[in-house]
Nucleic acid binder design. Structure first.
Lengths: 204, 204
DNA sequence: GTCTATATGACGATAGAC
DNA sequence: GTCTATCGTCATATAGAC
């Protein structure tokens, strides 16, 4: 996989790596993709990055700090992708449906990041940036929801219903409820989009 | 917590416990409730049950076997509770709404079991009974869905949409998206119920 | 900023006595 | 069916050299 998490910045300094921080993040992401969020260890991450187990501590306070940074990047990627998907239409109902489909898509092709953001088991209180980044993703839904429902309470209902439904379909897909993972992605996206529309149009 | 998982059976045999198997299951459940599914260890479970770390191996093949049994019991409890909640009405739409509310309720007051069933990280292929018990829960939705939608494909859509939405709200509640956990349970249940109805009535 | 070396401490699982 | 003892493995984290 080896996703680009930032710009590697043409190794400017140091002795060996130049950009160990990003190398560690990428290695950790690969590790989570292979063994799941609970299989993540700092020691194995170090090995994959080709450094000693002591090296990471110059870049992250501890194991959880690295994981929290990964989760934060996950929320940022989500925000970027969902915003792009929603920009395809001006119809608020269509925007919410596009969000649901994009959510499922993200869970599928960035499974590790998706798992970390939700099943990372991080203490959100200890990492305030995290809750903030997560809220920012959910906030994407507020504008189209407000256009569909003038009443603020009803708008909040829509935000949460669409968000919960999208998350449920994504979780089902990840858990293999649909069966074959490859062919089921499209059907999961279609279903998530349709469910979001149903949640929305009955209020129109 | 110390939920009753079976009948303790008035200690018939053995030296110390009489029913170590159930005592281990109960201790493991408490442990998961405190530290999450990834915080579960067989050693700590043994300590809490007051036995040596070797004792569990006379009752379970290994660590995962104990966890899998707990997950199976979780699905069975879900089935019982959801079936009871759905029995309150003859209207299929109302039954699906009752399922959604009961699902959120279960995630709230049996948080450990809920976490194990979904975030246990178990190899479903290695424990076929597990996938079966999980399918049996989802199957509860099939009858009311079939009554609402004559077409089998549409009925499946309903089953998955209601299931995904219920799961999404439950996950949001567990993750603290709603804020205060105690006061938010009722609002989460109300929202889940309302969303399920909206998913259903637009097809009526 | 990275390494080597080490302290410290879990955990899973098994062997053998009772 | 439970215990004591133990092996092997792996982890987090720190200290000090370079």
């Amino acid at each position: 996989m080896t996703l680009t998490l930032g710009m590697p910045s043409t190794r400017p300094s140091g002795q060996h790596h130049g950009d160990l921080r990003n190398a560690l993040l990428a290695a950790a992401l690969d590790l989570v993709a292979e063994r799941g969020a609970q299989g993540f260890t700092l020691a194995e991450t170090s090995r994959r990055a080709g450094v000693s187990v002591a090296a990471p501590y110059k870049h992250f306070a501890d194991k959880d700090a690295l994981l929290a940074e990964l989760a934060r990047l996950g929320y940022e990627q989500q925000h970027t992708r969902f915003a792009a998907a929603m920009a395809g239409s001006d119809d608020p109902a269509e925007q919410l449906a596009a969000f649901a489909a994009a959510y499922v898509q993200f869970a599928s092709d960035s499974r590790a990041l998706f798992e970390i953001t939700f099943a990372g088991g991080l203490d959100k209180a200890a990492y305030p940036d995290l809750a903030l980044a997560g809220d920012r993703v959910l906030a994407l839904l507020r504008e189209p929801a407000a256009r569909l429902a003038p009443d603020p309470d009803e708008a909040l209902d829509l935000v949460l219903a669409v968000g919960a439904t999208a998350h449920g379909f994504a979780a089902f897909l990840a858990e293999g409820v649909f069966g074959d993972p490859t062919s089921s992605l499209e059907s999961a996206k279609r279903r998530a989009r349709a469910a979001a529309l149903r949640l929305v149009v009955s209020d129109a």
